[in-house]
Amino acid sequence: MTGRGEDPRQADALEQQFRTARAGLVAWFRRRIGDPVEAEDLCQECFLRIGTRGPDAIGDLDAYFYRTARSVLADRRRRRAVREADAHIAMAAEGEPSRNPDPLHSLLAREQLEAVSVVLAGMPERTRAVFVLCRLEGARYAEIATRLGISVSAVQKHMLRAIDILLAAGESA
């Protein structure tokens, strides 16, 4: 499944890269779904999607793999939701991967982003800052601690509080 007649050496290189990233991806899935066997399956699904896409214009491969993994996981969620929601809506989406992972496309719908934004805005300043620095700027706790002049365990507490508030808000929405 190299797809679209790509240079086979490039496809090999991609496969090689994926093999290197594989253990990390399985662990990533396992952390999210808790089931080691299904984690392996989803990782395989990832690989198939990458194979059909072809390695051109991809850029940083690891980032691409995880982007793909996120959309595989999102599709799994969709399939499950469909299965749980019963027959009539089900047929349209069943089994059909919604789309290729697109770097320009956010996995959260606009309304969801707006809701998150509103909840974040209502948080205490430092709690919000910790969450934003961690999730949106990719900073580690130690860096955040230095930036804000607080301890790492205080960063952890803020982070937990932020997540707590976000999840609670989602529940009541």
Partner: peptide
């Protein structure tokens, strides 16, 4: 839901 939110914020 928690994971959907977290991973969804990866690509805003």
């Amino acid at each position: 839901r928690a994971i959907e939110l977290w991973d969804g914020l990866a690509e805003v």
